[in-house]
Amino acid sequence: MTILFKSWHHYLRLTQRFPSVGSIVPFIPVVALWWLVTALELFPRVFLPGPGDVLRSFGSLVYKGILPDYLQDSMVRLAVGAFCGIALGIPLGILIGMSRHAHTALWPVLLFFQAIGDIAWLPILVIWFGYGLVSMTFVIVYTVIFPVVLNTVLGVRSIPIAMHRAALSLGASRWQVLWEVVLPGALPNIVTGLRNGLGYGWRALIAAEIIVGTSGIGFLMFDARRAGSTVEILLGMIILGILWYIVDSWILAPIERATGQRWGLVSK
């Protein structure tokens, strides 16, 4: 037992010094279990390919240039979704958070449309825009925007009134209050909203690609189903997980740490 504890302790220290170790090592047992299950042939190989098969398929798809293209398509869509979510969601959230009139007028509408979640729009979008980029972009922007708006509103409203008053009595104009107090004060919530929104958006995007896509990781998986290639389906699933892990833990989480936690607005 003590050896286990000791090695765990060493491992924790190692992850602190080299964070990348901490993001790889936990997957070793998962992959090992997967390999064991396939090696024992508990399921037929056709239904559950092993890690080696998936890796080979990865190599060949990269070689053919299909995977990099699809990957790029999905990532660009995610980036467009993030950009539009930020460009529309943050101003809207600040408006609703700061103005009682805007809140009264827009909040019920917002909740209504939030309820018609992402892919519930697809049937009508396909009729309007057909299969393709416009429909998919609509879905991801739609999905990203709500968590961003709702969290921005929350962030704006969580700023103590004394903070507004302090800025005003130090001579700040309304715009200066917005820029110097409201935006930074709401930033930790905005980042959280963006993190949630992109998480939902990523899933919605894959769903949209499966249903209406002509390219992208979701399309890759659905196309593989048509060809009966379980290897490529599994590859797609793994790529989804890895991509999100990278976006979340290498980009979004550090931003969150650099803002709210540094300022003591969010507890560590």
Binding site: P160, A162, M163, R165, A166, A167, S169, L170, G171, E180, V181, P184, G185, L187, T259, W263, G264, L265
Partner: peptide
């Protein structure tokens, strides 16, 4: 800005 205010809650800008 002609009337400076010191608040009970300090109201410093955390960021």
């Amino acid at each position: 800005p002609d009337r400076g205010v010191v608040f009970q809650s300090f109201a410093l800008f955390p960021w």
